[in-house]
Design a protein around this nucleic acid. Structure first.
Length: 946
RNA sequence: GCUCGAAUGGUGGAAUGGUAGACACGAGGGACUUAAAAUCCCUUGGCCAGUAUCGGCUGUGCGGGUUCGAGUCCCGCUUCGAGCACCA
């Protein structure tokens, strides 16, 4: 019987949908397993063959786990808010909701053809009110929370108010934007607005005036991970630094937990390392410096407290408030000019030309250890946002300080024995300390580091500084708070209105605040975000609710927040929502959270390492703190699928003609390479008729062929429309079937590796499925019978069970497919007819090729679905043989093989090997030093000359 | 500059320290066919020898080392990829 994949796949697609085969419910009887894919942004271009790679890999795992008896949750949805739909709206006037709807429909159609076991009843879309209700809800809770450093947890803001009323800031260890100090009396004396402003300093979601990445072309601010090399990630437009009032999330408060949490999860080292870099923990010392002839004191941060004796100048960031305080009248003009100049330079320019610039303030600091005066400079190589925005400069042992000292002719004092600082600084943290202090100089309490190793010196200085109240040990993180506002239309609206200039949360029971309709999607004439175009009273749902619940008489005097939330808002807790996606009362029920807990396997691209994967860990930790999420870390195991690149094809046109030269001959002519649609090229051979029909200008093209064929050139490039190298999964499904596509995508190589898509090898997988199908039939009839399986049959089967089970657990799908190919060809040559063996083969193959296996399962007369079969049990006994063949080596070089009974002991093998005729030939004139027997593998005889 | 990862035939890629190149593609040869497609069989890292005899050498980016034995472990490089990058 012919393998008719079109009919089979259509039939089972429908049957699975009708029967709800992939619906899951919480089931206390069964152990749960949660498989998740990073949900896609539905772009207008549809899916290309790269997108399903991860989905197929996780689908195989989900199906496998189900066959092993787990209750598997494998949901899917859409990250539906995003810039492309909005930009399309600006250009065409088409509402983003409509574009998004259409794109989702297309995605769904494509996804359905591949045979995934998604439970679509749990689908979420981030742009739907019943979903973003909970995004707004979480934001609201963050606004009403602060982070307690001593208990490492988010807590309700009321607790903080209570503390202020009793003791002011005394004894508090909480995360804040700035360090504030006030007494309970001072707190009580504050006006309502003043108190609100103080609280804003501590809220986890807060409105803060910070330096932001402003992208004028996009008309919006961007988060740090959305800016690459000083331009926007989307569109590549320039980004400038600008001080603006923006919503922020206090991610930095969670830096410590984000870092230590990495140790508890099963992710690749490279992603963990990337996150560690991004979090950027650095342990150092904060030290106070007094300004000479002044009461002013300021604090610096250093990881190299040991280099205190080599400080020859101090540097302030241009943005630092100290600059104005410390600049002397004589220097004021110079400093002002410098500040003006740095303000004009964008981030990009600062990165591009690292010129050494700076200016002297005219003031001096006092070295707390030696009493020496040290000049204080201003330079933009010191960043305001990190540490305290001020540093002690040690040119001998820091390359940046060194460059600065050289440029401005400042002294350089080496502090490490043998370090040569005549050409460059010595930055390494190894060696023995000297000149600390310089011989004969007096220091505070006679403090000296001379003779210690650098590590010892760092520790000694820390201890001394702490003991004498000169500073404290401090851990700094590079991780910044996330900027959470975007001046865009197509995003979640904030549940916020303003009263007396201070933001107020819309009451919880009024959520969700729905996105209003607008007349146009651009900023307003007064420069407000697009939401400013909404007819104010068109926010009727919002307005009415606010009026009712807050008993506000006239809403129009209380402006609404016009920014929307960024892309990562909706994607930060979607994995929780899948657990209970129809719940209207809560983000999810406690029962659902208790049952599903966390994602056991998360599959997606590594490009989200510093974006989504940080934000959602943060978000989950917050939700964990308030009791919604049951676990500290949301994603237990993470697998990163590689990117599928495009493999472009080229034709070579003779200059100024319509004649094309085949690849092998092109060097003899003057030719221009042109991209050609990969879909009219097979195995690099151009389909000439299709080429002529491709474009009108090629209709009468002529060709210079080799071997009667036109061979195309190729290159690996990004998969994109303009390179004509996009391959759609639909086309592959049409031509070969979904099962072949699934197998081939997995056979391409390890899933975590990036590789170009190349349709060349797909025939091999198609052939394999036809051969597998052929095992079950004799011409037109089912050939499977109840005969006893032969020993060979069982051996082949159990070899396969072992290999496939191990490989799936390790996501090594390409090797398990190889194992299937071997098994099928063995069973085929064994003429296996055994129902027992073939049925187990079907179950093993079902995760990879579900349609064909479901069909075979039913043809063999089984009830139900192959999805609910039992995973075959491996039995070692079937692999045992009477004889084992061992290779015999001399000095590690294999010479011949010998057969031994399986039961032979090491000693018997040794003796028999030595006695054998073949061995004797090699022993002539040699002496046996020793014999190594590795059971089942090798016998190695070590020889030397007599 | 720092951190992490990788390097194996014409191609994608296999190899718990134990016969390197599984499996697949491509290529070459053959069978069937009027022919093509499909299918099946053989060969396929390189060099040499040989086909009456199932043979030899070499080979996993480069240079060392550990080991009876290294693609695999250790040290030092080269190249490529990824992340961070004036973070004190």
């Amino acid at each position: 019987m012919e393998y008719n994949f079109k009919e089979i796949e259509k039939k089972w697609r429908q049957a699975w949908a009708e029967r709800g085969t992939y619906r899951v419910k919480e089931d206390a009887e069964k152990e749960k397993f949660y498989v998740l894919n990073m949900f896609p942004y539905p772009s207008g271009a549809g899916l290309h063959v790269g997108h399903p790679l991860g989905y197929i890999a996780s689908d195989i795992y989900a199906r496998y786990k189900r066959l092993r008896g787990y209750n598997v949750l494998n949901p899917m949805g859409y990250d539906a808010y995003g810039l492309p739909a909005e930009q399309y709206a600006i250009q065409t006037g088409q509402h983003p909701a409509k574009t998004t709807e259409q794109n989702i429909a297309r995605y769904r159609e494509q996804l359905d053809k591949i045979g995934f076991c998604f439970d679509w009843s749990r689908e979420v879309r981030t742009c739907e009110p019943n979903y973003y209700h909970w995004t707004q809800w979480a934001f609201r809770r963050m606004f009403n929370s602060f982070y307690c450093n001593s208990c490492q947890q988010a807590q309700p803001i009321e607790k903080l108010v209570e503390a202020f009323e009793q003791n002011g800031t005394a004894g508090l260890d909480v995360a804040g934007s700035e360090e504030l100090n006030f007494t309970a009396e001072e707190w009580k004396a504050m006006s309502d607005v003043q108190q609100q402003e103080v609280l804003m300093n501590y809220r986890i979601a807060y409105l803060g005036e910070t330096m932001v990445n402003w992208c004028p072309q996009l008309g919006t601010v961007l988060a740090n991970d959305e800016v690459v090399d000083g331009v926007s990630e989307r569109g590549g437009y320039p980004v400038v630094q600008k001080k603006m009032k923006q919503w922020c999330l206090r991610v930095s408060a969670y830096a410590g937990r984000l870092l230590t949490g990495l140790e508890t999860i099963d992710w690749t080292d490279s992603i963990k390392e990337t996150q560690r870099n991004w979090i950027g923990r650095s342990e150092g010392t904060e030290m106070q410096f007094r300004v000479k002839d002044s009461d002013i004191e300021f604090t610096i941060f250093t990881t190299r407290a040991d280099t205190i004796f080599g400080v020859t100048f101090m540097v302030l960031a241009p943005e630092s408030e100290l600059v104005a305080q410390l600049t002397t009248p004589e220097q004021k003009a110079d400093v002002d000019a410098y500040l003006e100049a740095t303000k004009k330079r964008t981030e990009r320019e600062r990165i591009a030309d690292r010129k050494v610039t700076g200016v002297f303030t005219g003031s001096y600091a006092v070295n707390p250890f030696t009493g020496e005066a040290i000049p204080i400079w201003v330079s933009d190589y010191v960043l305001a946002g990190y540490g305290t925005g001020a540093i002690m400069a040690v040119p001998a042992h820091d390359s940046r300080d060194y460059a600065f000292a050289r440029h401005f002719n400042l002294p350089i004092i080496p502090l490490v024995e043998g370090a040569d600082v005549s050409e460059e600084s010595f930055d390494a943290k190894e060696g023995t300390v000297m000149n600390s202090p310089v011989a004969g100089k007096e220091t505070l309490h006679g403090f000296s580091l001379n003779g210690l190793s650098i590590k010892e010196a760092i520790a000694a200085t820390k201890e001394f500084v702490t003991k004498h109240g000169m500073g404290r040990v401090k851990v700094n993180y590079r991780l910044r708070d996330a900027i959470f506002s975007r001046q865009r239309y197509w995003g979640e609206p904030f549940p916020v209105y303003y009263k007396n200039g201070m933001p107020q949360m819309v009451p919880e029971e009024c959520l969700p605040i729905e996105l209003p309709e607008v007349s146009k999607f651009l900023p307003t004439e007064t420069g407000e975000p697009p939401l400013g175009n909404a007819d104010y009273w068109a926010w009727d749902t919002v307005a009415c609710k606010v009026v009712e619940n807050s008993r506000i008489d006239n809403i129009s005097v209380f402006p609404l927040e016009l920014s929307t939330m960024p892309g990562f808002a909706g994607s930060s807790a979607y994995y929780l929502r899948y657990m209970d996606s129809h719940n209207e009362k809560a983000l999810l029920s406690a029962e659902a959270a208790d049952y599903w807990k966390e994602v056991d396997l998360y599959v997606g691209g590594s490009e989200h390492a510093t974006g989504h994967l940080i934000y959602s860990r943060f978000w989950n930790k917050f939700l964990h703190d308030i009791g919604v999420s049951k676990v500290e870390e949301p994603f237990r195991k993470l697998v990163n699928q590689g990117m599928i690149q495009g493999r472009s094809n080229f034709v070579y046109r003779l200059k100024d003609t319509n004649t094309f030269v085949s690849l092998g001959l092109k060097d003899n002519y003057d030719v221009t390479p042109l991209h050609v649609d990969v879909n009219i090229v097979q195995n690099d051979v151009l389909d000439i008729e299709a080429f002529k029909a491709w474009r009108p200008e090629y209709a009468d093209a002529e060709f210079i062929l080799e071997d009667d064929k036109y061979i195309c050139g190729w290159a690996v490039e990004k998969m994109s429309k303009s390179m004509y190298n996009v391959v759609n999964p639909d086309m592959i499904v049409e031509k070969y079937g979904a099962d072949t596509l699934r197998l081939y995508e997995m056979f391409l190589g390890p899933i975590n590796q990036s590789k170009p898509w190349d349709s060349n090898g797909i025939d091999g997988c198609a052939r394999f499925l036809r051969k597998a199908w052929g095992l079950f039939f004799d011409k037109e009839n089912l050939a499977v019978t109840d005969v006893e399986p032969s020993k060979e049959n069982l051996k082949t089967l159990h070899k396969l069970i072992k290999k496939v089970t191990e490989d799936i657990e390790e996501f090594s799908y390409n090797t398990s497919i190889s194992a299937f190919m071997i098994a099928v060809s063995e069973l085929s040559s064994q003429k296996c007819r055994s129902r027992e063996v073939l049925q187990q083969l079907v179950v093993l193959l079902a995760p990879f090729a579900p349609h064909i296996c479901e069909e075979l399962w039913h043809i063999m007369g089984n009830e139900g679905s192959v999805c609910d079969a039992q995973w075959p049990v491996f039995d070692e006994a079937h692999l045992k043989e009477d004889n084992v063949t061992l290779s015999v080596s001399f000095n590690g070089k294999t010479r011949f093989t010998l057969d031994f009974p399986t039961t032979a002991t090491k000693e018997e093998i040794e003796a028999a090997t030595l006695a054998s005729e073949q061995t004797q030939r090699y022993l002539e004139g040699m002496q046996v030093v020793k014999i190594i027997v590795v059971p089942g593998r090798i016998v190695n005889i070590v020889l030397k000359n007599k």
